[in-house]
Design a protein around this nucleic acid. Structure first.
Lengths: 367, 367
DNA sequence: TTGAAAGCGATACCAC
DNA sequence: GTGGTATCGCTTTCAA
C-alpha cells in the first residue's frame, strides 16, 4: 500500500491507463462509460482510477462532445422571492436531468443581460432560460438562438422570438382583481410597477418592455374600460425601482387631493414597500386604502391585515421552463410552445368596499 | 446518448485567421488579447471576427490555461432569503472580478453536497464557496482543498479544515438576546432550529453539525448558565425542517403545561412559521409569547407586532467570502483567515417582559 | 474487445 | 511582430 496521496490532481486517463496496463482508449471507455470493455479490464481500470483518485475533466469532455451539461439562467434579480422560487424550480429539474445551472443576474438591465448571454454562450451552455429585461430589445437572444442554443423564456414572452415560453396568466389575473375592486366601488385605482419609461410616464402598454407587467397593465385597463372608466392610464405609476423611489411615488399619490382608494402592487417587493409606507403614515389598510399585490410571498398572509394577492405558480413556472428546455436538449423537436399557467386570486383582508356615500362622492370628483 | 445538436456557430480562430490572411497564432493573439500584434493586423483580424460573428470558446481556453473563470457555490437552500441575499453578495463581487458563478443547492444534505462538489470539481471551477451542511463530515471538502481548489467557508466554519471562513457573530448574538430575555423575566425560553439529530433530541452542542446553529445554541446555553438557569438543554428543539414539522413542534410546546414564554427562531423561515402558528392559535405576541428571530428578513418589520430580530450582515457575508476567494485566486497567499462579522440586535415589539407576579410563579414551577 | 491516432479550439513556446 | 507546432484531457473513428 502506498499511502502517498497524489498532490496535484493532474491525474488523466493516460495515467490510469498506464497503471491499469491498458491503452488510453480503453481506459477512457470505462471511465467515460461508453463503448464495450471486458469485465476484467473494466475492473482493473476502475481500481487504478480509484487508487490514483482520478477525477474526470468535464471541460475536456465537453470539448469533444460539444455538450457541457450546463444550463444558463438569466433572471432579473435573485433576491426577489419570485425569482428565487422560480430558480429553485429550475435547478431541481435540471439536476434531476443531469444538468448543472449557471445563474446570472441581469439587474433588469439589458446591457448586463447581453453581457451575461455572451458569457454563457462562451461557456458553451447547452441551453438558456431567460427572463428578458426588455421584450423590445432581444437581438442578443435572437442571435443566441440562431447560433443553435435552445432557449426558454420565463415569465416574459416575445412575439418576435419563436421559442418556448412559460408565463403566468397575468392579464386575466389583473383583469379579475381590477374588476373586483371596481365592483367594490373603487374608481381611483393605482397600478404600481418597477418598470419605467424614459420620461417616467405611462401612455400605452406598448411602452412597457417587461412582458409580464405589460400584460397585467393591459388587463387592468381592459377591466377599467369594460366598466366605463376612462383615463385610467394616468393611474399607472412607473419607476418603483427602489424603496426610496416607491416611497416618493406612493407618498405623492397618497397626499394628493385625488388620492387612490386602492393600489395594485406589481410584485411582492413593491407590495411590502407600500405596506410599510402605509404603516409609517398611519394609513389604515383596508379602511383608508385597499392593497393588492402580485405574488403570494410568504409574509403576505401574516401581516395585519393579511394581504390579498394574485397567487402565481412560481415554482411550477421554473419547473416547466426547465422541463421544456431539457426536452429540447434531448432532441425532441417540434414547434415552440407557449405555456400559460393559471393564477389564483387569494382574497384576504387588505381590500374593502367603498361605502355608498363615498362612492357617489368619488363619482362627483370624477365628473 | 443523443446526437450533438448542430451548432452552426462553429467559427474558430482558424476561420478568422484564414479570412484575415494571417496565421492561427496571430489571430489568436488579437482575439485572446495577449502577446503583441501590429495595428494593421489587429484591425484585419477584428474585422474578420466581426464578419464571421466569431465567439470565443471558453471551454477550449480553459483547457489550456487551466482556469475556467468560474466559482462554484454550494448553499443549503437558495429559497431561504438568507442564502439568496448572501448569493447576491457573492455574484456581485464575482462578476466584478470577472468570474461567473455556478450555484448549487445541497438541501442541507451531505450526500447531495458531495455530489455537488464532485460535479463542480469536474467542471474545473477555479474556487469554491461552501456552506457545509455538516461540519463533522467534510472529507469531500478536505479532498477538494488537497486537490488544489481554493475554498471559502460561508456562515459555517470548521476547525479541522484550515481554510478562509466568513461567519457572523452568532454566539454572541444568541447570548445577548438570551440575556435580554432572561433580564425580562423569561425562564422558559425555547430555541427552535431546523437542524436535527438522529433521535431528534438535543443533548450537547457538539451534536449539532451546522456550525452557525451550534454557535448560537452555545451562546444561548452560556447566557442561561450565566444566569444560573440549568437544564435549558431541554428547551433546544430540533427538526423544524418543514412548516408541518414546525407546527407540530410549536403546538406541542404551546399546549404543554410548561409552555415557553419565549421562542428564539434560528432563521427567518422558522420565525415566520412560528408567527403564523401563533396567529392561527390566537396566541398574542408578545403578551402570551415573546418571539425573536435570527435574520432581519424584510417582512419582520411589517407584522403586528413587528418582530425583534438578530440582524446579520448577510449580503456582506457573501461579499467578503467572494473577496477572500478572489484574492486567493489572484495568487495572494498567506494563512487562512477567519472573518467574524458583527451582528446587531434589532429590538422591535415581539418581546415583552414577564410581569412580576408571573415571574415568581415561573420560579416556583422551576423549583 | 482493444489500440493507435486524429481531432476539439484555444494557448504558449520557440524560431524567424 | 509573426508563423509553425506541441499541448491540454478527452472522445471517437478505424484497424487490428
Amino acid at each position: 500500500m502506498d499511502p502517498t496521496p497524489p498532490r496535484n490532481n493532474a491525474v488523466t486517463v493516460a495515467d490510469v491507463a498506464r497503471m491499469a496496463g491498458v491503452s488510453k482508449a480503453t481506459a477512457a471507455r470505462v471511465l467515460g462509460g461508453y463503448g464495450t470493455v471486458s469485465d476484467r479490464v473494466r475492473e482493473a481500470v476502475t481500481l487504478a482510477a480509484r487508487n490514483l483518485n482520478y477525477r474526470p475533466n468535464e471541460l475536456a469532455r465537453s470539448m469533444t462532445t460539444g455538450r457541457s451539461g450546463t444550463i444558463g439562467v438569466v433572471v432579473g434579480d435573485i433576491e426577489n422571492p419570485f425569482f428565487s422560487l422560480a430558480v429553485r424550480g429550475i435547478t431541481d429539474i435540471a439536476r434531476q436531468a443531469g444538468f448543472t445551472v449557471i445563474l446570472t443576474n441581469s439587474g433588469e438591465n439589458t446591457e448586463t443581460e447581453k453581457a451575461a448571454i455572451r458569457a454563457l454562450l462562451a461557456k458553451r451552455v447547452d441551453g438558456l432560460i431567460v427572463s428578458p429585461a426588455m421584450e423590445s430589445d432581444v437581438d442578443h437572444l435572437e442571435e443566441a438562438i440562431r447560433s443553435g442554443c435552445p432557449m426558454v423564456l420565463l415569465d416574459r414572452g416575445s412575439r418576435t422570438l419563436g421559442v418556448d415560453t412559460v408565463v403566468a396568466d397575468d392579464g386575466h389575473a389583473a383583469e379579475d382583481i381590477t374588476r373586483r375592486l371596481i365592483a367594490g366601488g373603487h374608481r381611483r385605482i393605482a397600478y404600481l410597477t418597477a418598470c419605467d419609461t424614459p420620461d417616467h410616464r405611462f401612455r400605452l402598454p406598448s411602452d412597457i418592455s417587461t412582458g409580464s407587467v405589460r400584460r397585467r397593465i393591459e388587463g387592468f385597463l381592459r377591466a377599467c374600460h369594460e366598466a366605463g372608466l376612462s383615463g385610467m392610464e394616468d393611474w399607472v405609476r412607473l419607476g418603483a425601482l427602489t424603496p426610496a423611489e416607491t416611497q416618493r411615488i406612493v407618498t405623492a399619490m397618497l397626499t394628493d387631493k385625488h388620492a387612490p382608494t386602492a393600489i395594485i402592487a406589481s410584485d411582492s417587493v413593491i407590495g411590502l414597500d407600500v405596506f410599510k409606507i402605509c404603516r409609517d403614515r398611519g394609513i389604515d389598510i383596508p379602511r383608508d386604502l385597499s392593497l393588492v399585490s402580485f405574488h403570494d410571498a410568504d409574509w403576505t398572509s401574516v401581516t395585519t391585515p393579511p394581504v390579498t394577492v394574485v397567487r402565481q405558480p412560481v415554482y411550477q413556472l421554473g419547473e416547466k421552463a426547465a422541463k421544456l428546455l431539457v426536452e429540447r436538449l434531448n432532441g425532441n423537436g417540434g414547434p415552440a410552445s407557449r405555456v400559460v399557467l393559471k393564477t389564483e386570486l387569494v382574497e384576504r383582508a387588505s381590500v374593502a368596499d367603498i361605502p355608498a356615500e363615498q362612492m357617489s362622492e368619488a363619482r362627483q370628483e370624477k365628473v
